[in-house]
Computed example of a mutant assay.
Amino acid sequence: MSEFEQVNVVREANIFFDGGVTSRTIRFADGSRKTLGIMQPGEYAFNTNSGELMEILSGDLDVQLPNTADWRTFKGGESFTVGAGERFGLRVRTVTDYCCSFLP
């Protein structure tokens, strides 16, 4: 889906790592939420509160999923999930556009 309809957008940006990762929160009528964001090249680590589906819209990055030593490459059109209460690493190689869906 390339467009979301009948949503509320939180005006203030989510800014992480001195602006290396930014996003905007979108809230849906059913209570679900997503963030749409951009990641600049760099290395980042995130902790999750809830499960997340990370859809890579464009770009190129390596991801270290929880409880693994391996890094996997993801590009535009690919996605990965991370469970609640987990930590994952990112090595962003090119500016990366993403959509994060928070899972119940």
Rank of each mutant, 00 (worst) to 15 (best):
residue 61 L to Y: 03
residue 99 C to D: 08
residue 99 C to L: 14
residue 37 G to R: 04
residue 75 K to I: 13
residue 15 I to G: 02
residue 82 V to P: 07
residue 38 I to T: 15
residue 30 D to Q: 07
residue 17 F to H: 04
residue 26 I to K: 11
residue 47 N to S: 12
residue 49 N to C: 01
residue 88 F to I: 00
residue 78 E to D: 13
residue 3 E to W: 11
residue 72 R to D: 15
residue 27 R to E: 13
residue 22 T to G: 09
residue 22 T to H: 06
residue 81 T to Q: 13
residue 53 L to I: 11
residue 85 G to V: 09
residue 70 D to P: 05
residue 52 E to V: 08
residue 89 G to Q: 09
residue 61 L to I: 03
residue 95 V to Y: 02
residue 100 C to N: 06
residue 85 G to S: 09
residue 32 S to Y: 10
residue 57 L to K: 05
residue 12 E to H: 03
residue 63 V to G: 01
residue 86 E to Q: 15
residue 60 D to C: 03
residue 61 L to R: 03
residue 43 E to Y: 08
residue 86 E to T: 11
residue 39 M to F: 14
residue 103 L to K: 02
residue 98 Y to P: 02
residue 56 I to C: 12
residue 67 N to K: 12
residue 10 V to E: 00
residue 17 F to K: 03
residue 93 R to F: 00
residue 39 M to S: 14
residue 24 R to F: 08
residue 72 R to W: 13
residue 36 L to N: 08
residue 74 F to G: 04
residue 45 A to W: 07
residue 77 G to Q: 04
residue 53 L to K: 13
residue 29 A to Y: 08
residue 100 C to R: 04
residue 62 D to V: 00
residue 65 L to Y: 04
residue 47 N to L: 08
residue 89 G to N: 13
residue 98 Y to L: 06
residue 34 K to L: 11
residue 46 F to W: 12
residue 62 D to Q: 03
residue 50 S to D: 06
residue 33 R to C: 09
residue 88 F to E: 00
residue 59 G to S: 10
residue 72 R to Y: 14
residue 50 S to V: 04
residue 93 R to E: 02
residue 57 L to N: 04
residue 9 V to M: 11
residue 85 G to N: 12
residue 60 D to K: 04
residue 13 A to V: 05
residue 26 I to P: 11
residue 104 P to M: 06
residue 59 G to Q: 12
residue 72 R to N: 15
residue 11 R to L: 12
residue 101 S to V: 09
residue 20 G to M: 01
residue 49 N to E: 03
residue 87 R to N: 10
residue 17 F to R: 04
residue 82 V to E: 05
residue 61 L to V: 04
residue 5 E to P: 06
residue 73 T to S: 15
residue 104 P to S: 10
residue 18 D to N: 13
residue 21 V to P: 01
residue 3 E to L: 15
residue 98 Y to Q: 04
residue 30 D to G: 06
residue 77 G to Y: 06
